[in-house]
Design a protein around this nucleic acid. Structure first.
Lengths: 141, 141
DNA sequence: GTTAATAGTTAACTAAGTTAATCATTTTTT
DNA sequence: AAAAAATGATTAACTTAGTTAACTATTAAC
């Protein structure tokens, strides 16, 4: 490892540690970070299916099924059976689910907020670009 | 949110999602990522205590105790009782533990490797600097 | 010297993941 | 067109990593 790589490794280690240690804190109303992430994701996508969620979140279909069941029971999501293929149940955020996302500040929202207080606009853009490049490279493997 | 913030949020969301989905994959010899992270952390620190690990990893002392027990039983760590304070048990990596870290590539190692294939030296340094700034800001809250 | 605090562990429990099996539906094969 | 295979979602049984509360031992404080 070069010096530059070592420094990156060091910072990235701390960064990952911080993410893992803090992203699950501050859950409110009994809604965990996982629940929140699912609702936010579905809200941003507009609609999606359990199958896709499992793929995108990298966990098994039954695991998604269980979390989604909780979110359905708590009226944060609702299902819509597809007319073309009756096996498929689309998931959408309810008004209550949308409200949750819009009124609460996610971990990512906090990072974004803090990033833009401590970085200039140019720096934030650079960081976005560089992080995006690394991510694209990782995903392409 | 400004455009720049929205773009950062978007990339960071993907980035976090990727970390969570992938960091626990590829565990080898029945050693999970958590085990690996603990051994790596202790190895890099030289020696540490359960108390400190709990604080640094942001989980409870009993949770650390249970993981450490496994690592002791599997000869990846060993304990050394402090002479000054007999309540304290220092944890260190065994040769087997060190070998594990040195011969296997952690998730962070992979990210570092891929980051430096897709970024120039200057870009990697910039990314390290910017990520470090954001992290320091988050930690200071 | 007794009381209070601290490092670590054990016990009992919870939550979120896993695989295997099942149901309903759609697609493919013959 | 009927039978067989595949697919999306769920349920059941299980595992694992975390939690809090209670305990042991040691040290610090009054």
């Amino acid at each position: 490892m070069t010096k530059a790589q070592e420094r990156f490794f060091e910072v990235f280690t701390d960064f990952q540690c911080y993410i893992l240690a803090n992203m699950n804190k501050g859950d409110f109303n009994g809604i965990t970070a996982t629940h929140y992430n699912l609702v936010e994701y579905i809200y941003r996508k507009g609609k999606t299916t359990g199958k896709k969620l499992a793929a995108d979140f990298g966990i098994s279909a039954p695991a998604i099924s269980k979390q989604v069941k909780f979110l359905l029971e708590n009226d944060l999501l609702y299902q819509e059976q597809s007319d073309e293929d009756r096996r498929i149940f689309y998931l959408k955020a309810t008004d209550k689910g949308k409200l949750l996302i819009n009124t609460s500040e996610s971990f990512r929202g906090q990072v974004t907020k803090q990033a833009s207080t401590v970085l200039s606009k140019k720096e934030l853009e650079d960081l976005t670009l560089l992080l995006g490049k690394v991510l694209a490279q990782m995903k392409s493997l």
